[in-house]
Simulated scan of single mutants.
Amino acid sequence: MGDGSLSQEEIDALLMGTDDMAAPAGKGGGAAVSDGGGLSPTERELLADAFNDAMQVAGSQAGAMVGKNVQITNAQVDEITPAQIAAELPKGGVIAEISMGSTQTALVFPKDIARRIAQTMMGASDEGGEINDAHLSTLSELSQSIVSSIANGLGGKFNESLSPSMPDMKLFASPADAPQFMGGIVKISYNIAVEGMPGSRMTHYIDAGSASRWAKANRSAGAPQAAAFDMDFGGAAGGGGGGMGGGVSVNPINFPSLQQGSGAAQLPPNLELLLDVQMALTVELGRTKKYVKEILSLGEGSIIELDKLAGEPVDLLVNGKLIARGEVVVIDENFGVRVTDIVGPAERMARMAGG
């Protein structure tokens, strides 16, 4: 507006925290994105962060399958159209089409890294050549594990069922082999580093509708609630001129008491005496039963199959009582657990007490 006052659109932008008042085009930060897409710069960065977190777990599980250290990092988000996907797929690359619930996705490996990983998993040395059916079968297991980790991470984060389907594996030889998306596509590219192998890239194509929904949910969950306040942009009292041309009145923000609604306040008074007592927290990967003769026959190199699938949440136990579930993450050089499902404080105490 010409008098220096904020327009209504600018006021709305300030209140909603929108990116409509962002820096000029070409100065966006974080993930690599295309201009004019359906995701704002902030939403693309939040989406990249969510997939980076999921890939920490995926890299650890992939490393266990490959038998080498695997790191999948640096998620970069872009938005493309179905017409563009065939033009950018690597010739001879491996495509694993896997749905996560109702969300269509496709994981793509370049030819060389795909062949090297498959050969290593098969216990053979890489001598070049073409990718065959045995390679595709081996890579199918790896792709299933990676996408399961992503599905578990995103499903817990956004409270959505994202059960992965079985991979549909193929080699990219012509545009007819490209995944067929009905609408827009969000492309997430990663650096993939496998111990003893040259660095490469891996790409995950996702239905844009689902990606947009996750990004907006992530943004809503992470954004503080807007405080209600009044702004008066009317004429200046006393005839003052210049500036915004009027007084601005802001009502105080009333924060809720930290005491109310806390877990400790809802517990019986006699249990408050125990709140400073330390207890052992156990993370359980899985269980199984074996005969005594099978246990006595265990030795170095023995493999024990557990009752959980790769990528399933682990259990958090206190005194043998289940209190939560979570996903395994890597923190520096240590393993950790990100809690994705937890019961209320009172119920946790009841479980630990044997109730």
Rank of each mutant, 00 (worst) to 15 (best):
G2I: 08
D3C: 00
D3H: 08
E10I: 13
A13V: 08
M16Y: 06
M21R: 12
P24K: 09
G28R: 12
A31T: 14
S34E: 10
G37R: 15
S40D: 03
T42G: 13
E43C: 01
E43K: 14
E43P: 00
R44T: 10
E45G: 11
L47E: 10
A48F: 04
A50E: 11
F51V: 11
V57Q: 03
S60W: 01
Q61Y: 09
G63L: 06
V66Y: 07
I72T: 10
I72N: 03
N74T: 11
D78E: 11
D78A: 13
E79P: 00
Q84K: 13
A86N: 06
A86I: 03
E88V: 09
L89Q: 07
G93R: 04
E97H: 12
M100P: 05
M100E: 01
M100T: 09
Q104K: 13
Q104V: 12
P110E: 15
K111C: 07
K111H: 09
R115Y: 15
R115D: 07
I117H: 06
T120L: 09
G123H: 06
A124M: 08
D126S: 09
D126I: 14
G128Q: 02
I131L: 07
T138A: 04
S140H: 08
E141L: 06
L142H: 09
Q144L: 12
S145M: 12
S148I: 06
S148P: 00
I150C: 05
A151M: 03
G153P: 00
E160Q: 07
S161N: 15
L162P: 02
S163C: 10
P164T: 13
M166C: 03
D168K: 13
K170F: 04
K170M: 07
L171P: 00
L171S: 05
A173K: 08
D177R: 15
P179E: 15
M182P: 00
G183W: 10
K187E: 05
I188K: 05
Y190P: 02
I192R: 00
A193I: 14
A193C: 12
E195K: 09
E195H: 04
M197P: 01
G199Q: 12
S200Y: 11
T203C: 07
T203E: 02
T203P: 01
H204N: 15
A211Q: 07
R213N: 15
N218S: 15
R219S: 11
R219N: 12
S220F: 11
A221Q: 14
A226C: 08
A227I: 08
A228S: 13
D230V: 13
G234P: 01
G235R: 09
A236S: 11
G241E: 12
G242Q: 10
M244D: 02
S249R: 15
N251Y: 14
P252T: 13
Q259V: 04
Q260G: 04
G263Y: 07
A264P: 01
Q266S: 13
Q266C: 04
Q266E: 06
P268D: 14
N270T: 05
L273T: 14
V277M: 13
L281I: 15
T288R: 11
K290D: 05
K290G: 03
K290V: 14
V292F: 08
E294P: 00
S297M: 06
E300D: 12
I304W: 08
D307N: 10
A310Y: 01
G311H: 00
E312K: 06
E312Y: 10
P313C: 05
L317E: 10
L317M: 05
V318K: 02
G320M: 10
A324L: 02
E327W: 00
E333H: 15
V337N: 05
E347Q: 09
M349T: 01
A353H: 12
